[in-house]
């Protein structure tokens, strides 16, 4: 797996290097053709009363993410996201995208976050809350993400309707493909504009592949997001996601599931508050973890955000613990498009 990542990183760097070099040699503004560069940093202080948590009161650089992207040529773009989390440095995403390819489809090749639900596609610093959803950590580890190929298109319907088919390697919790058998991922995403202000987004996802016991895992996911824009910079958003897993544990079929729900209220460009509730089993275990949390954030500018979260966690044995997190998230570089 490591060799694929290294090869991919080398390939993407090799694609971008001539662009940088060419820009420096010939154009009036040497920086014009350089890749867009951005850094997202997450600084965190947290406290937990969980005695099992060795790091129960600490400050840390939770994550530094370096992003590069540029057009390779008129036909393709490259995105590279490297992240340093703790002592680990890894390629979070690195892919070539053909925005409009043959048959008017969009293609991706490389390592990317799979289109399974909405939570899996978003980076942690983009969430309005601070913790990784249990649904993600329990069923995918970090993310359902690895090297693979993707094709997606729009269905000719009077509303937005998008299908995506992906084949990826994955060696997370639910799948273990060992670089040989791919995980098949499919998603059907729709958007309904109920009124000018209210939009409903839904997605149905399927994933199927081998797991580490040699059996098969089949995941089904569904998400819905309702967003109501009350004023220019004021909205509330309800996001709900469900996952069901059929995990063939060496002949014994384990059926488990997870649910995640979050309600957030953005008061203006500066303040956002919300609460979440989630519960999750694990692919091979029917024990259930739960989390209830409230969170809030203050953004003095587009490029800096203070945020905090208080969570009550209940583990599979029913033991309740409390944790408090405070973060400062900063962005260096150009404006990013806000996700819907």
């Amino acid at each position: 797996m490591l060799s694929i990542k290294k090869t991919l990183l080398f390939f993407l760097t090799a694609c971008l290097f001539p662009v940088v070099l060419y820009a420096e040699m010939t154009v009036a503004n040497p920086a014009a053709l350089n890749p867009k560069l951005s850094v997202v940093g997450t600084l965190e202080a947290d406290y937990s009363n969980d005695p099992a948590n060795a790091d129960n009161a600490r400050a840390s650089v939770k994550e530094i993410e370096l992003g590069l992207n540029a057009d390779i040529d008129p036909f393709a773009k490259a995105y590279v996201l490297l992240s340093k989390e703790g002592d680990e440095f890894n390629l979070e995403e690195g892919f070539v995208q053909v925005p409009v390819g043959p048959f008017d489809l969009q293609y991706k090749l490389g390592k990317f976050f799979a289109d399974f639900g909405k939570l899996n596609r978003l980076h942690t610093h983009v969430y309005p809350f601070l913790t990784e959803p249990l649904l993600i950590t329990h069923y995918f580890g970090e993310r359902l993400a690895d090297a693979g190929v993707s094709a997606s298109g729009l269905l000719p319907l009077p509303f937005f309707s998008e299908w995506t088919l992906q084949l990826i390697n994955d060696n997370g919790t639910s799948f273990s493909t060992g670089d040989v058998f791919p995980v098949y991922v499919g998603q059907w995403k729709n958007f309904f504009e109920l009124t000018d202000a209210i939009g409903l987004e839904t997605g149905l996802s399927l994933a199927n592949g081998h797991n580490s016991t040699g059996g098969n895992t089949a995941l089904t996911g569904f998400y819905a997001q309702l967003k109501d824009k009350l004023a220019a910079n004021t909205y509330w958003k309800l996001h709900s996601e469900y996952l069901s897993s059929n995990y063939d544990n060496a002949g014994a079929l384990v059926n488990t599931n997870a649910y995640f729900g979050v309600l957030s209220l953005c008061l203006n460009r500066e303040w956002e508050f919300g609460s979440l509730g989630e519960t999750s089993q694990s692919p091979a275990s029917t024990g259930r973890d739960m989390r209830l949390a409230v969170f809030g954030s203050f953004s003095p500018s587009e490029f800096g955000r203070y945020r905090g979260q208080i969570s009550q966690n209940t583990d599979t044995a029913g033991v309740k613990t409390l944790d408090v997190r405070i973060q400062y998230v900063f962005v260096l570089g150009p404006h990013a498009v806000h996700p819907y």
Partner: peptide
């Protein structure tokens, strides 16, 4: 700060001409 609603994507899928403001005002 325009919400990039997916319904706009559906509308643009049929467009013959898209007019943008440029200068990083409307990156959405």
């Amino acid at each position: 700060f325009i919400d990039p609603k997916p319904s706009f994507i559906a509308r643009l899928a049929h467009a013959d001409l898209a007019v943008v403001n440029g200068m990083e005002l409307d990156q959405w």
